[in-house]
């Protein structure tokens, strides 16, 4: 679970260190508050905390960026770490050409996801990556099911248009 959580946090933050901090904070918070809850609720509760932390990070960063933009200072951690996935060899596919295509798609998908508005991004990763249904996604995001449907649909169409060259 923590690997996926890290992947989601990193997509939103763009920074490995911030993503690790967010995941660690989420796991500690979850363990302290919800470890006693029924196991069936864990997934949704965990992602609720995670996405709440990501949203907090996003707000704090937006304020910081505005501050830096006003005063013309370089942003902390701006482009501080390139995507490690781009440097890792694909061991899944035996066909090198297919492996390269898959890796290129993954990198392009992650880049496109990172450019989506936060709520669309959250709706997409929770539904497509984690496999939540609309109700679970709504609970994790703390919004209505209708809102999830809207965000998810917009995300899918935006990604499809951005990743047209990789269409199946």
């Amino acid at each position: 679970m923590e690997r996926r959580a890290f992947g989601m946090a990193r997509l939103s933050c763009g920074s490995r260190e911030d993503a690790l901090d967010i995941v660690q904070d989420t796991m500690l918070h979850f363990a302290r508050l919800y470890a006693g809850r029924p196991e069936g609720e864990w997934n949704v509760l965990f992602y609720r905390i995670l996405h709440s932390r990501i949203t907090d990070w996003y707000r704090r960063t937006a304020v910081r960026r505005r501050f830096h933009d006003w005063f013309g200072k370089p942003r902390d951690g701006e482009n501080d770490d390139e995507d490690p996935l781009a440097r890792v060899a694909d061991t899944i596919s035996p066909d090198p050409a297919e492996g390269v295509m898959r890796q290129e798609f993954t990198v392009a998908l992650q880049a496109a996801l990172a450019r989506l508005p936060l709520r669309q991004q959250q709706a997409f990763v929770l539904r497509a990556w984690e496999g939540f249904d609309t109700a679970q996604t709504a609970r994790a995001m703390g919004c209505s099911e209708g809102s999830v449907k809207t965000h998810y649909s917009r995300a899918v169409h935006a990604l499809q248009s951005k990743l047209g060259e990789f269409q199946p």
Binding site: E2, R3, R4, F6, G7, R16, L20, V23, Q24, M27, L28, P84, L85, V88, D90, I92, R102, F105, T106, L109, Q110, V125, A128, W129, G131, V156, L159, Q160, L163, F166, Q167, P168
Partner: peptide, 27 residues
């Protein structure tokens, strides 16, 4: 398209570097 995206994202979980995995284990 969604299935392809899901597979790609899930496969990315197995490609994390050792240092990141160690930090996640510690967490």
């Amino acid at each position: 398209f969604l299935e392809k995206a899901r597979l790609a994202l899930r496969a990315s979980e197995d490609r994390l570097d050792a240092a990141t995995l160690a930090r996640l284990r510690d967490a």
